[in-house]
Simulated scan of single mutants.
Amino acid sequence: MTDLVDSMLDLMRRLPPTRVEENVSALVNICPDYADDLLGSVDQPLKLKTDRATGREYLACDYNRDGESYRSPWSNEYDPPLDDGTVPTPKLRQLEIKANEAFDTYREMYFEGGVSSVFLWDLDDGGFAGVVLFKKSLNPSTASEPSGSWDSIHVFEAAERGRQAHYKLTSTIMLELGIKSSGDISLSGSMTRQTEQDCPVQNQESHITNMGRMIEEMEIKMRNLLQEVYFGKTRDVVYDLRSIESLERQRRQRELQKELVGFMKR
């Protein structure tokens, strides 16, 4: 079992990231018995759904999925309806409601649009875990405008230790950009980082403040890394392939350099 799942994950790392949903679906059809293991291990672009009770949009992923239904963070109901779907305890549900309000404000400040969702669940050791999701998409009105999407998945665990709590955060960002004005150009990929931190806790709402600070710092760090790795390297490759200056001008510059070197050696 482990070898087969590892082989599927190894294959996914070598397939185009722009077709991750198609590839996951194909592997699930080939090995349906390992669908849960694969879906729980491969990050896919977040899907938008609408809460029928409130009319608000939310994000669907493996963390709010139960079978073929997805739970809304706004109404706490599953779509399609599920009588025995997993939901947080009343105390944790109250924290989930406040967390969704807080990160919805964070989303508006940092992304100026998009959709956010927060889902929490209890752990067997007495702590709790959760996931904070953000999605921002570019929907071009014309073919000359760029298209793309930004998906953030922040999974964390919180364990209280007296007046402090220990947090484990795993953050994944999936980026996709496309331009069709000068030929089909696609830039896509994902990045995952982990961190752990101890923070003081005064009440339940302290968890929102602590996790908000950790997620904010992680997103800033990963944005800078993405800018350096993806955009910086792409710019270097493009500049190496296509010179802004003409070949004739470069040839004259090389000849001038040789003449100067010759005069200096005399």
Rank of each mutant, 00 (worst) to 15 (best):
M1Q: 10
D3W: 04
L4K: 10
L4Q: 12
D6I: 00
L11D: 01
P16Y: 02
T18N: 05
R19N: 12
E21M: 06
E21C: 03
N23F: 10
L27F: 10
A35R: 12
D36C: 02
D37L: 08
D37N: 13
D43W: 06
D43P: 00
Q44K: 14
P45D: 05
L46A: 03
D51H: 05
T54A: 09
D62Q: 11
N64R: 05
S72Q: 04
D83Q: 11
G85D: 05
V87I: 13
I97T: 12
K98M: 11
D104C: 05
Y106T: 10
E108Y: 07
Y110N: 11
G113N: 10
S117W: 02
F119K: 01
F119T: 05
G127C: 09
F128N: 02
A129H: 06
F134Q: 05
K136C: 09
P140V: 10
E145R: 12
P146Y: 09
D151A: 04
F156K: 02
E160G: 00
H166R: 13
T170A: 07
I173H: 01
I173E: 03
E176A: 07
S181M: 08
G183E: 03
G183R: 02
I185F: 12
L187T: 03
S188K: 00
Q194F: 01
Q202E: 14
Q204N: 15
S206I: 09
N210R: 08
M222Y: 01
R223Y: 10
L225C: 02
K233S: 15
V238H: 11
L247S: 14
R252A: 15
F263D: 11
R266Y: 03
